[in-house]
Design a protein around this nucleic acid. Sequence first.
DNA 1: TCCAGATCTGGTACTCAGTACCAGCTTTGG
DNA 2: CCAAAGCTGGTACTGAGTACCAGATCTGGA
Lengths: 197, 197
Amino acid sequence: MELFFKQGYDNTTVDQIASAAGMSRTSFFRYFATKDDIVLGRVDELGHQVAEALVTRPEAEPVWHALRGAFDPLLELTAAAPERWLAVARMLSDAPSLKASQLGRELAWQDMMVPDVARRLGAANAALDARPRALVAAAIACLNAARDVWSASDETLDLTTLLDQAMNALIDQMDGAENRSDARLSDGIVLGESGRP
Amino acid sequence: MELFFKQGYDNTTVDQIASAAGMSRTSFFRYFATKDDIVLGRVDELGHQVAEALVTRPEAEPVWHALRGAFDPLLELTAAAPERWLAVARMLSDAPSLKASQLGRELAWQDMMVPDVARRLGAANAALDARPRALVAAAIACLNAARDVWSASDETLDLTTLLDQAMNALIDQMDGAENRSDARLSDGIVLGESGRP
DNA sequence: TCCAGATCTGGTACTCAGTACCAGCTTTGG
DNA sequence: CCAAAGCTGGTACTGAGTACCAGATCTGGA
């Protein structure tokens, strides 16, 4: 990671990493399946944490609210070491192939979360219903969008606030139009300040 | 593409493609920057079409509705040659790296669409507001989800219907909860049967 | 008609990620 | 103390992508 931060991801070869770690190229590939596994290796297990957090959400909770709450473990990790996550986020911006790989890994998140969302929606056959997958994919998209803006703002904005704004925007995006302006935010279901103690 | 369909994407080398096309490996890379450019080359220009369709949407239209309408050109292309798009979709499912690359290219869609959405939302500084990016990213996520389910159903379901269901699910996902069941679909703003003549 | 410039082409050689295989060393357990 | 298991490094390979060079072809004037 230090090499990546110093030289950039694309400008760092596996040989450099291996020698810096005091091991051979062969041994490196025994611990990391691919080069991007160094950066994105934690993404997979993070997906498990998010999926677990989702199923432990209360049953009565609206689905979108539950999805928002599922991201709480992730937000806590980010809050614990913001500069670290910010550096990684900047690295992802500089290396498009790395970002694409991250999005590909997040597809596994979907598969882990879709069943629970389908159950919450009472979807008959989850495989033929686009709604569960759409909700999950959209929630993850909101997370990515919030993270992008957060890293672009150089940590001047709060990631949790950005995520709340992002996910709320999907519920009350109609406020931008003139024909539906009965403030939906005051209905009682407002994300924002809930989700964490 | 024939080779990809016959042998699979990963099992086809650039040398095979070049010789099948009657040209050298060098010349191949003069027409296609990368191997996946064969499959995903149209994604970029498709993004321009979607972005153009977005800006031509009526100003009074709710943002989410405008985003749904922006996908109409894409749906028309799919409807014109469904079996072709289905084959490509199946190929993307078999080759995870290819799908990741597609998601990476769709990030360019976001950058093209975000400014217009920010304008429609009346966002002061688009760079520090997560909402425009979240809406665009979520809309694209819905498109991908609908396409996934569509390809998984072997074209037995209609892609347009699936996309409408997917994007509607984000507006009325609260129907799954028990505390907000005032049918929002009957409010007058229903996607579904609008968007195309 | 001919010639010069631009363009297209194929070939060679290279870097780098990732895989397969093999041989030697160290560690563990009986 | 020895054998099996595991870890290690080395070599050689495939395949994508890049850089460079040299020949062929195609243009547009003179």
